Amino acid sequence: MLTFYPQIKAVHILCVLLSGGLFVLRGLMAQTRLAGVAQSMPLRLLSYGIDTALLTAALMLLSILPGALFANGWLTVKMILLLAYIALAMLAMKRARAPRARMAFYVAALATYVWMLGVARVHHPLGWLHGWLA
C-alpha cells in the first residue's frame, strides 16, 4: 500500500480543504438568516460524504505510516484538535442557542481548524507557532 501513499495523501488533503471550505460556508449561513439552508439535507449529506472520505483516507495513511510517527506528539495533538474542532463545530452550527455563543464557537472552531492545518503542515504540536515559540 506504500506505493499509493502519494495518491491517498492527495485525497486526504483535498478532503481537508473541501471539508473546511464547506464548514466556512455552512457556518456563515448558520450565523445569518440562512440557518435553515445550512442545515438542509443536501449540504449535510455533502458534508457527511466529504468527511467519510477524509476519515477513510486518514485511516489508510495511519495504517501505512510507521508507529514511530507518534513519538514527537504532533499526530496525537492533531487528533485531539480534531475532537475539539468537531465539538466546537457542533455548537456553532446548532447546539448553542444564543447567536453570540454560536458566533464564538464558530470562530473557535475555525481557529482550531487552522491550528490543525499548522500541526499537519509542520509536523509539530505547536503548528504554525513552532518557528516563533520554539
Rank of each mutant, 00 (worst) to 15 (best):
A57M: 07
T76N: 07
S47T: 12
A96L: 12
R33M: 03
V107H: 02
V77C: 13
G21S: 06
I50V: 15
A30I: 04
L61A: 06
P42K: 13
Y48D: 14
L43K: 04
L45P: 00
K78Y: 03
A108S: 12
L28I: 14
W115M: 15
M90D: 00
L117H: 02
F4N: 08
L43M: 07
R95V: 07
A38F: 02
R44E: 01
L117E: 06
V114Q: 06
A92N: 01
H123S: 08
V37K: 09
M41A: 13
S40M: 02
L54A: 04
L46M: 13
K9S: 13
R97W: 01
F23N: 05
A57N: 10
L45I: 08
L133Y: 08
T32C: 06
L25K: 01
L54P: 04
L83R: 01
T112K: 09
L61V: 07
M79Y: 11
A134H: 03
V122A: 05
R97D: 04
L43H: 08
A38T: 04
A53T: 09
D51G: 05
Y5D: 01
V114H: 04
L75Y: 08
Q7V: 13
L83T: 09
M60R: 05
A84Y: 00
P99F: 03
Y113K: 02
R26S: 01
L61M: 14
T112I: 06
A108H: 01
F23V: 00
V37H: 02
K94A: 11
M60D: 01
A84D: 06
G49D: 07
L129E: 05
M79W: 11
M29G: 13
L61E: 03
P99I: 03
A38I: 11
L54N: 04
M79C: 11
Y5M: 06
V37Y: 04
D51F: 06
L75S: 00
A111Y: 02
W74E: 04
I64Y: 11
L88Y: 03
L61T: 05
R102L: 02
A30E: 02
L82I: 10
V122Y: 15
R97N: 08
F70C: 03
V119G: 02
Y48I: 08
L46C: 11
L82N: 06
A57L: 03
I86L: 15
A53S: 05
L65R: 13
A120W: 05
L14M: 14
L82A: 10
L43G: 02
I80A: 15
W115S: 11
